[in-house]
Nucleic acid binder design. Structure first.
Length: 567
DNA sequence: GCCGTTTTCGGCCCGACTGTTTTCAGTCG
C-alpha cells in the first residue's frame, strides 16, 4: 500500500461525506488527515504509529490501517454502495454543494448530471424547499457551459488578460491602487480564475465603471465590495474584483493572494495571540481593527519576515522562515544566457538585445541563436555562426559595462548526434544543447540523445529539459531524475526556462537538481525585447522551488561565470 | 472527526453574495 493511494482514499471519503450532507468539520477532518500524510516527508514504513500524527485520530487511523492490511477501505466501499458515483461530478457544478446534491438525490432521485438536467427541464427542482426558479435556471445554464470549459487556464493564456485588466484599472481615476492577487500572483502554472484587489473610496462607481469597460460574457455577482464576471475573451475566464478602502488594501491583498492553507496558518497564529485576521485587517480583542501600509508591515505585526507570494502554499513555509533570505530575487540577476536575434528567429538585432539588457543592469549575456538543423527557425550554418562570433567580438569592443558572450542553442538531432562538431563548438563561449524534434521517440532514445549532449565537453547547459508547454503538450518524456544525475556527474547546468509557456524544469525537478548540486540557469529564451521581462516570472518560479540564490548561475558575478566557462 | 493542562465538550479561519427566506442556509474563495 502506497501513501498516494491512502491520501486519495481519504480525500474520496471526504467527497462522499460531503455528498451525504455530513458535518463540514467531519469532512474537513478527513481532508486534513490526507494533507498531514501528504506533507509528512517520511514513507509509510517509516511511520510506526500513524495516529500519533496530529490530525489523524481513531477514525482516520482505522481507515489507513484497513487500507494497509486489506488493500481497500471498507468505509469507502460502504459509502460507494449507498451513494451513487454519478453524484461526484455534480460537486463541480458552481452553486451546487454537498447539501443541495444530497437533497436532489433524496427527494428527486437525481443520481447523475443527466438526470439532473431532466429534473430541471421538467421543473421539478424549483419545487424543492430551499430551491427556487432562479436556482433551477442557474443549474441549467451551468450545465450548458461547465463541461466544455476547462477547469484551469494556463498562466501564459492569463498573462495578456491580466495586462489588459491592469490597463483598464490604471486608466480609472476612481482607483487608488490595485494588484492582481490569487494563484496568478503566486505564479502557479495555471489558475481557475483571476483575482484583483482594488483600493478605492468609491466602490460603487468603480463597480459601474468596471462593468462598463470590461468585455463581459456574464456577471456572476455584483455586490458592494465584490464583482465577479466572466470575460468574453479568447478562452473565457472568470475574474473576481474585491473593492476595499485604501487602508484595507494590504490586508485584502494578503487575504486574496492566499493560498488558503497559508491564510489558515496565519489565522491560527493570530488566534493564539487573541487576534483575528480578516481581509480588512487584524481585529484586536477590544474589537478595534488594525490596518497596515503593506504586506511587509502585516507580517512584521506577527514578528514574521515578509513571505513572498510565490512560497505561500501549504503552510509549511512558516516552518522554513530562515531560508527566505537565501531565495533569489530579480535584483540578484546579473545576466540572461539564452536569447535569439534576427540571425535566426528573433525579432531584434544583437545590438538591440544588448541595449535592452544593459538597461536591465546586466553585466553579461549570451547570444544563443538556433543551429543549422532548425531550418524553420533560420538556424545558423557553420559559416554564419563563425560570422556571428566575429560580429559579437566586434560589438564587445563597444561596451565597457556589459560583456557579450558568443553562444549557440544547438540542436540535438533525432539520430542522437549534435548539430555542430567539436572544432566549431570550441570557438564558442557558451554552448546550449536542446531538443526541438522527434518528441515522440521512446524514452531510451530521448535519453541517449541527451546523454550525447551531456558527455560532450563543450556543452555547458541543457535548455528546456522536457520540452513541455504548460496545459498544451507534455514534451518529450525524458527520465528527468536520471538527467539530473548525469548533469551532476558531468558538471552541467540545467535550465529553468522562464517563458510562461514552458517553466521547464518544473519545481519538483528544480528541487531535485538543487539537492544534487546541479546549477540552474534562469533564462528568458527571448525572441523579442518584450520577452526579456520573463526573467521576473522565472525568478518567482525559482522561489517556488526554494532554490538558493548561489545555485542559480544568473546570480554569479562575471568573474565567477568566466571561471565556470574555463573549466 | 480531531483536539486539548486555562477545555474531555465545544470549537474548528473568516466573510461576501445569492436566493430563499422573513432571519438565514448554502456555497464559495
Amino acid at each position: 500500500m502506497d501513501k498516494k493511494t491512502i491520501i486519495k482514499t481519504l480525500e474520496k471519503i471526504a467527497l462522499y461525506m460531503e455528498l451525504q450532507g455530513e458535518n463540514p468539520f467531519k469532512v474537513s477532518a478527513f481532508r486534513k488527515a490526507a494533507q498531514v500524510l501528504e506533507l509528512d516527508e517520511r514513507s509509510l514504513s517509516e511511520m510506526d504509529n500513524i495516529t500519533s500524527l496530529k490530525g489523524i485520530g481513531a477514525a482516520t487511523g482505522a481507515v489507513i490501517n484497513d487500507l494497509i492490511e486489506t488493500g481497500e477501505s471498507s468505509l469507502l466501499k460502504e459509502m460507494q454502495e449507498s451513494v451513487p458515483g454519478g453524484l461526484l461530478p455534480m460537486l463541480k457544478i458552481p452553486g451546487l454543494g454537498g447539501k443541495k446534491i444530497a437533497k436532489l438525490y433524496k427527494e428527486l432521485g437525481v443520481d447523475s448530471i443527466e438526470s439532473l438536467k431532466i429534473a430541471c427541464e421538467e421543473g421539478k427542482v424549483k419545487g424543492l424547499a430551499g430551491f427556487g426558479a432562479k436556482t433551477e435556471e442557474k443549474i441549467l445554464a451551468q450545465l450548458e457551459v461547465f463541461q466544455t470549459k476547462p477547469e484551469r487556464t494556463a498562466i501564459w493564456q492569463l498573462e495578456p488578460i491580466v495586462a489588459f485588466i491592469e490597463g483598464i484599472l490604471a486608466s480609472m481615476d476612481t482607483v487608488v491602487k490595485y494588484s492582481v492577487a490569487g494563484s496568478y500572483r503566486r505564479v502557479k502554472e495555471s489558475s481557475k480564475d483571476i483575482d484583483f484587489i482594488v483600493a478605492t473610496t468609491l466602490p460603487l462607481k468603480v463597480r459601474e465603471e468596471l462593468l462598463e469597460k470590461l468585455p463581459l460574457l456574464k456577471v456572476i455577482a455584483a455586490g458592494d465590495t465584490k464583482v465577479s464576471v466572466t470575460l468574453d475573451v479568447e478562452n473565457e475566464v472568470d475574474v473576481d474584483f474585491r473593492l476595499v478602502e485604501p487602508h484595507q488594501y494590504a490586508s485584502a491583498l494578503h487575504h486574496f493572494t492566499g493560498s488558503k492553507d497559508h491564510n489558515i496558518k496565519m489565522r491560527q497564529i493570530a488566534k493564539e495571540k487573541g487576534l483575528k485576521i480578516s481581509e480588512y485587517g487584524v481585529e484586536q480583542e477590544d474589537g478595534s481593527v488594525q490596518s497596515f501600509e503593506s504586506e511587509k508591515e502585516f507580517y512584521a505585526y506577527f514578528d514574521l519576515p515578509f513571505i513572498p507570494p510565490t512560497i505561500r502554499e501549504d503552510g509549511t513555509e512558516l516552518n522554513k522562515l530562515e531560508m527566505i533570505p537565501s531565495l533569489v530575487t530579480l535584483e540578484d540577476i546579473k545576466g540572461d544566457f539564452h536569447m535569439h536575434t534576427t540571425w535566426s528567429d528573433g525579432a531584434h538585432s544583437i545590438e538591440e538585445m544588448v541595449e535592452a539588457c544593459r538597461e536591465k543592469g546586466y553585466s553579461h549575456i549570451v547570444i544563443t541563436d538556433h543551429s543549422n538543423y532548425l531550418k524553420v527557425a533560420n538556424g545558423l550554418s557553420r559559416e554564419r555562426l563563425l560570422q556571428q562570433i566575429e560580429a559579437i567580438h566586434v560589438m564587445n569592443e563597444k561596451y565597457s559595462d556589459i560583456e557579450i558572450f558568443a553562444g549557440t542553442e544547438m540542436d540535438i538531432l533525432p539520430d542522437g548526434s549534435l548539430d555542430f562538431d567539436d572544432e566549431l563548438l570550441e570557438q564558442l563561449d557558451f554552448v546550449i544543447a536542446s531538443i526541438h524534434s522527434s518528441f515522440s521517440q521512446s524514452q531510451d532514445k530521448i535519453m541517449a540523445r541527451l546523454r550525447t549532449a551531456i558527455e560532450n565537453p563543450h556543452v555547458h547547459m541543457i535548455a528546456h529539459p522536457t520540452g513541455r508547454i504548460i496545459g498544451s503538450r507534455t514534451g518529450y518524456d525524458p527520465d528527468v531524475p536520471t538527467l539530473i544525475e548525469w548533469a551532476s556527474e558531468f558538471g552541467k547546468i540545467l535550465e529553468l526556462n522562464a517563458n510562461p509557456h514552458r517553466l521547464d524544469l518544473e519545481t519538483v525537478y528544480l528541487k531535485m537538481a538543487q539537492e544534487k548540486g546541479v546549477p540552474i540557469a534562469i533564462n528568458t529564451d527571448a525572441h523579442h525585447l518584450d520577452q526579456l521581462r520573463y526573467m521576473d516570472v522565472g525568478v518567482k518560479y525559482a522561489q517556488k522551488a526554494w532554490l538558493h540564490k548561489e545555485n542559480i548561475v544568473n546570480t554569479w558575478t562575471l568573474d565567477k561565470f568566466k571561471q565556470y566557462l574555463k573549466k
